[in-house]
């Protein structure tokens, strides 16, 4: 009897642990929106905001889509990237009848399995950027990966 009890106690000991194991689950990312981020800087590398209203449009064949609508004091813009096209165009409409600037973002698209419980997502890698230079001086790629992280991807340096 002591032998049987000893064996039973041994085998039950880790059943408790196994029960805890069975209750563990997989955590999905809280932010599941994939967007790139660009931020505004001056010539001295200081973060700046646009004092007047700014509208940013994404060019599509079926008509432009507004991603920032008349925002005042905008210092950064979140933008989408196309799932299938290689280059996207953003148009910056400044207030006061100023000439708009255009940004051209070339990228590759990476269909990604997040997990079978959390779904799939389209991540991107920015390969090159360019723009018109009415008010924009240069563009700098800070982080080429566009995913759930919302890191600063592009620095827009104004004149």
């Amino acid at each position: 009897m002591p032998r049987f009890r000893y064996i039973a106690r041994l085998l039950c000991a880790l059943l408790v642990g196994a029960g805890l194991f069975a209750c563990s689950g997989e955590d999905c990312p809280i932010n599941n929106v994939v967007q790139g981020k660009l931020a505004f800087y001056n010539q001295h590398g200081e973060s700046v905001s646009y004092a007047d209203s700014l509208t940013v449009r994404v060019v599509r064949p079926q008509g432009d889509s507004v991603v920032l609508n008349r925002k005042v004091y905008a210092s950064e813009v979140l933008f989408p990237l196309s799932y299938v096209h290689g280059t996207d165009t953003l148009i910056f409409d400044y207030s006061g009848g100023r000439v708009p600037d255009s940004l051209f973002i070339s990228h590759t698209n990476r269909p990604t399995l997040v997990s079978v419980d959390c779904g799939t997502a389209m991540f991107h890698t920015i390969t090159s950027v360019g723009s018109t230079h009415h008010y924009i001086d240069t563009l700098v790629i800070k982080s080429s990966d566009v995913n759930y992280d919302e890191r600063e991807n592009i620095q827009v340096i104004y004149r």
Partner: peptide, 14 residues
């Protein structure tokens, strides 16, 4: 995957 802005579909098959 359905692109929410452009409306295109991208296959997810590896």
């Amino acid at each position: 995957l359905v692109d929410p802005v452009w409306g295109d579909e991208a296959p997810v098959q590896f």
